[in-house]
């Protein structure tokens, strides 16, 4: 009797929690198809907000800017971060722990402080050299900075797992250090590099707070969304949210399925 009561309680709790997580998103999606601008009364089905969205110059150009910054900064940060991880890995214990602690700073510091501190740096640059660099360059620099720990800490564990004898064997078999690196080390740490690249791309696309302080007059997608939310009623946001949600959902489902298949394969071996 008691356990049946407990089970009902459990189910109710899970329903409440997932309701809390998903009802707001469901409401956003439903009202993206609403004919009127109302956010509470559903008057009829329409796809007009999607049409408007694809003709919205501000959103489209912001999307372009975001993609440009995400691609450039994630590629650069992956190279810089992977090299850093290799260097850090080969250091002595004390130097290594000092550098890892400092590397964690952008991770643990509140985003607003990272944003503000970089903004001050760029303002200082402007005052000293007389050129305003705010815009794409400052966005790329700041995105590289907050993504560095992401890449470093996804490559470092792979280096630690790697058997150093693999590298030594490559050298013994006549590789020069460069060949040994590309043929023995790189393939081993590749999964870490790839996940670092993907994560930094995602974080770059998603970042609002740090970009807000370092963008100058340039608009990234999250900044454009912010300016739209200030207008209070803009059903295009609902349409945009729906599209993003569907993209995210498919990516998660695909990567999940891929992970499961890999797991099954490993089990079979």
């Amino acid at each position: 009797m008691r356990s049946r009561y407990g089970k009902a309680l459990k189910t109710a709790y899970l329903i409440a929690l997932f309701g809390f997580l998903y009802v707001p998103i469901a409401v956003l999606i439903v009202f993206s198809f609403n004919e009127s601008k109302s956010r509470t009364v559903f008057t009829g089905f329409t796809l007009d907000w999607y049409k408007n969205l694809f003709h919205n110059e501000m959103i489209l150009s912001a999307l372009g800017t975001s993609l440009l910054i995400a691609v450039v900064s994630s590629v650069l940060v992956t190279i810089l971060g992977t090299l850093a991880a290799i260097g850090i890995h080969s250091m002595k214990k004390r130097a290594r722990s000092t550098i890892t602690t400092i590397s964690h700073i952008p991770n643990v510091n509140p985003e607003i402080i990272t944003g503000v501190s970089m903004m001050l740096l760029f303002v200082g640059f402007k005052n000293i050299f007389g050129t305003n660099i705010f815009g794409i360059p400052t966005l790329i620099v700041s995105h590289i900075t907050f993504n560095l720990p992401i890449v470093i800490f996804s490559v470092l564990p792979k280096l630690r797992q790697m058997d150093i004898r693999l590298y030594e064997a490559a050298l013994d078999l006549g590789c020069n250090p460069r060949q040994a690196f590309f043929k023995a080390v790189l393939p081993e740490i590749m999964p870490g590099i790839i996940s670092g690249l993907l994560m930094s791309f995602t974080y770059s696309m998603d970042d609002f707070v740090i970009s807000y302080f370092t963008a100058g007059n340039v608009m990234t997608l999250p900044i454009a969304v912010y300016s739209m939310t200030r207008k209070k009623v803009s059903p295009e946001i609902n349409a945009l949210s729906t599209i993003l949600f569907i993209i995210i959902l498919s990516v998660v489902l695909i990567s999940n399925a891929a992970g499961e298949r890999k797991e099954k394969k490993n089990r079979a071996q």
Partner: peptide, 12 residues
Amino acid sequence: PMWMNFLLRTYA
């Protein structure tokens, strides 16, 4: 839901 931008979640 965490993969949605926090501005959109808050807007909801």
